[in-house]
Design a protein around this nucleic acid. Sequence first.
DNA 1: AATGTTACCGCAAACGTTTGCGGTAATAAT
DNA 2: ATTATTACCGCAAACGTTTGCGGTAACATT
Lengths: 332, 332
Amino acid sequence: MRQNPTLKKIAEKLNVSISTVSRALKDHPDISSETKKKINELAELIEYDPNPYAINLRTHSSKEFAVVVPSLSNFFYHSFISAIEEDARDYGYSVIIYRSSNDPKIEQQILKSCRHKRVSGIFIAITSETTDIAPFLKLDIHGIPVIFFDKVPQYESCNKICVGDEHAASIAAEEILKKGFRNVLGIFGDKNMSITQARLQKFMEVMRNGNPEIDLKTVHARSSEEAEQLTLSLIPDYLEKKFAIFCMSDEILAGTMKAIQRKRLKPPHDLGLIGISDGMIPSLFYPEITYAETSGYNLGKLAYSRMMRCISGSSFAQTIIDQSKLVMGGSI
Amino acid sequence: MRQNPTLKKIAEKLNVSISTVSRALKDHPDISSETKKKINELAELIEYDPNPYAINLRTHSSKEFAVVVPSLSNFFYHSFISAIEEDARDYGYSVIIYRSSNDPKIEQQILKSCRHKRVSGIFIAITSETTDIAPFLKLDIHGIPVIFFDKVPQYESCNKICVGDEHAASIAAEEILKKGFRNVLGIFGDKNMSITQARLQKFMEVMRNGNPEIDLKTVHARSSEEAEQLTLSLIPDYLEKKFAIFCMSDEILAGTMKAIQRKRLKPPHDLGLIGISDGMIPSLFYPEITYAETSGYNLGKLAYSRMMRCISGSSFAQTIIDQSKLVMGGSI
DNA sequence: AATGTTACCGCAAACGTTTGCGGTAATAAT
DNA sequence: ATTATTACCGCAAACGTTTGCGGTAACATT
């Protein structure tokens, strides 16, 4: 277990001062090109790498971003993180990923750790139980920008990047109308989630406006299993009127699909099916499920550029909405 | 953007020395309980939190583990990470997650970053193209233990924690035999992957020994789509003999299931289906798919205890295999 | 009264950087 | 020949901790 090379070691070997080595390594104009050459060569040779702890202690900049998500087993977050990482790499930042397990306590711990580590910025999808956003604002005071994404707080003046819930719900609804369904079941998530309210409200609005005579029923499920049960009990025995189901999320869709398979029904013939998704789950079935896309990747790109703006100082709180688009499967 | 509280600030306010504050905060016996009380109260009040960079600079210990995986959109890795995090939290370690995107270049960068940050240890599932393991051994020299899991190198003398590929393949094969299938299709992954070889070899061995007259066919697919195509073309038109399909992985299973849905076949009646999986994908279908479980969670627990052993110094390279168990769905 | 113990506490160096400032020698301008 | 300019380079402080060592006062022991 040998020691890591330091500026000091290089300085001693070359009979120059530590400051000279430090400056040479970052191409400071005060140092002659001759000296620079010597120093760089030796540094290369002994594989010198600056100690990030010392740098941070001195400069208070960590050059790393934190991404905090409730869960990792989620294609949406995964593609969000990919997008962030792509951009961060280009700017010389690294990104560390935290997982809150949807537990506000753990979330707080993570936040604390981010503060201690003086991360350069935080991207966070808050837990569904997060109510107190004071700690987040506090981070901003400490000079650490916070970008909320996907799951964002109600609070107005903070940076939020969200999927276009209303838009996604409306294009799904429009597709249902376009295909001429008269009997529609909408399955939504937990009533208390803001995402549910947004999607539900818009979905109903578009439906009602599009066709006042439609037979529309909406229900709420808090889990995949509940969605399965609801679907099972709410699919009419005789599908005389053209019947369609809208699933607000992947979780709901998974449950509903299980029920559909159980009843041995085949979209799009027996019934129409459409959801809102990032695309992973819909692609597992045949025919693939048609869905309004919520792209984690897009969101990531948007979030990153927002972050850069914050870091450069020229920022005011802003909410950005990513519009979604219809991805055609064969389920409706 | 106000400054963070430091030992110095506390010391000044209380007219004691920095060393006294430092010691008081860690309950050093040299400090009177009276002084300790004062200091702790003030520290609490102004929310003092030690600067991890300063600590690391001084002590060279980071109290954090790195977990490096090729991908995050993977239930298996997700549960592995959960297990590590659970244990790490108890021991006062935090864990940071890195994603190599299955790119050896990025993997190298991550390794480098881990070295710079002097992480306390690394858990890594290497990329499928990683050939040079010298950098890993070098980390060990630097005093950073490396535990390989899931995707591990061939090299003998390192710490490896793997799923029991042979065992999983054999219990799946036994289940097929037990249910009396005479016509079996085994779909495996890329021929070059060691995991494929292990599972294939054992699967065939058990099959042949169990029933020499069985009609067994094995194929290889490098993607989900390929698995779908293969399944489509290899399912007999007339399923007179009892027919079963074995899918080596989730990826394969996803493709195969699409083909099965496409052909409107229903397990377990039309054909038997069994896989090796962590359990996420199998639960999406009805009936749920029966599978030999490879538990990321178990692996994580094993890996962590191995890590602790390494850190305490009492370690020699060792390979640990986690045996799998059959999880009953209704597909066979 | 001199010495030994004990209980507290502070000094100062060290970890590896960065950076403002000042210094020296060589060269250019007066 | 003096002064200004330039090109290089080093000193030293600072970032926030930890920790060995030494010091002082109070008390207990001879």
